[in-house]
Simulated scan of single mutants.
Amino acid sequence: MNDHPRIPLAGVIGSPIAHSRSPALHGYWLKQYGIRGHYIPMDVAAEDLETVLRVLPKAGFVGCNVTIPHKEAVLALADVVSDRAALIGAANTLIFRPDGRIHADNTDGYGFIANLREGAPGWAPAEGPAAVIGAGGAARAIVASLLEVGVPEIRISNRTRARADVLRTEFGARVVVYDWVQAGNMMEDARTVVNTSSLGMEGKAEFRVPLDALDSRAVVTDCVYTPLRTKLLEEAAAMGCTTVDGLGMLLHQAVPGFERWFGHRPEVTAELREAVLSA
């Protein structure tokens, strides 16, 4: 009989990783629910990714989150890839099975939708088009989730149009691409507006997409959460829109992974938000 069962370990892999709020998030839940486990940040270079992933299960890891720049690369290293991760072309959550096999999933879209439904309870995705700014990894997950919940048309604009055209090709006829200089025009009659780019983030370029055509009935959300109230959200709120900050997406996307790794489905609460913001 083993009197000392292994303590489950999980973490987040990326490079750089010191800025990640995920250790504070999962650490809060582990403490709140009295679970004997640990969640740690791991700065892993691209050339070491496969070696590290193969070793972690042997060291007691039950899974991990994956962030920039490894979210696409892990798909080729996983033994099992969920339909969602395959569709999005990236994974953010890995589960290490007892036999050592790696299961890759993407919970970003789940986190995005859960955050919108919590922050804007009256949100009705089928009521009108969505305008999406940016065409990177976050946009892929968000476009897939918006299509799944019934948004009739998704308008995308990106500083480099070619990246938006790729999403149009992969996700089909409900996706319409706008040139960057026409990004403001996407807002007309849009009921959902999403910034998936880094515009407006602390230390990044300012958000300058004109909002003149923004409909006051729109729900506006920003994936940026540093600052929590971005220029986009401030201006949209002043125009009468319902706004939802980006922190909730980070919190909600963590729920499925924590449940798989530690055996308890955690709750997203106001206290959790405060703990992560003050980390």
Rank of each mutant, 00 (worst) to 15 (best):
I35K: 05
E259R: 12
N106R: 00
A45Q: 10
I142N: 04
G257L: 08
E267P: 08
G34P: 13
K204I: 10
I68S: 14
A135L: 10
N158I: 13
V268Y: 06
H103P: 00
A86S: 14
R6Q: 14
Y225A: 06
A279L: 07
S197P: 12
A73P: 11
F112M: 03
L232S: 12
W180A: 15
L199D: 11
R155D: 09
Q182M: 13
A130W: 02
G248K: 04
L232W: 10
V209L: 14
M42R: 08
S278T: 13
M187V: 04
L25G: 03
A18C: 03
A131Q: 10
M186R: 10
P8G: 00
D99F: 00
W261E: 13
P16V: 05
M201Y: 08
V55G: 07
T107A: 09
A76C: 09
D179G: 10
T269F: 02
D165R: 13
R84P: 00
D43T: 01
G34I: 00
P266M: 07
G122P: 00
H103M: 08
F171P: 05
Q182W: 05
L9Q: 12
R6F: 11
V66L: 09
G27I: 15
A254V: 12
E259L: 03
G122T: 01
F112C: 03
L116G: 04
R163S: 15
D215N: 11
H38Q: 13
A279P: 00
P41A: 14
V81I: 14
V132E: 08
R229H: 15
G109D: 04
V81C: 02
R174G: 08
N158H: 15
R265I: 09
V55K: 02
A183F: 12
R229N: 13
M42N: 05
L49N: 08
R97C: 05
T51E: 07
V224K: 08
P210W: 09
V166P: 07
R161A: 13
G203T: 12
V175R: 07
G89I: 10
G119L: 02
M186P: 07
V181N: 15
V175P: 12
A86C: 05
I35T: 12
K31T: 15
D222Q: 06
V80N: 00
T93K: 02
I35W: 06
D48Q: 13
T226Q: 13
A18V: 09
V62L: 15
V81Q: 00
I133L: 15
H70N: 11
G119F: 00
A130G: 03
S197L: 14
M249L: 06
L94A: 06
D108L: 07
Q32E: 11
I142K: 01
I156A: 10
R155N: 05
A237P: 01
A18Q: 14
L214H: 04
G184R: 02
A76I: 06
E235K: 10
L199S: 15
K31C: 05
L167G: 09
D212C: 04
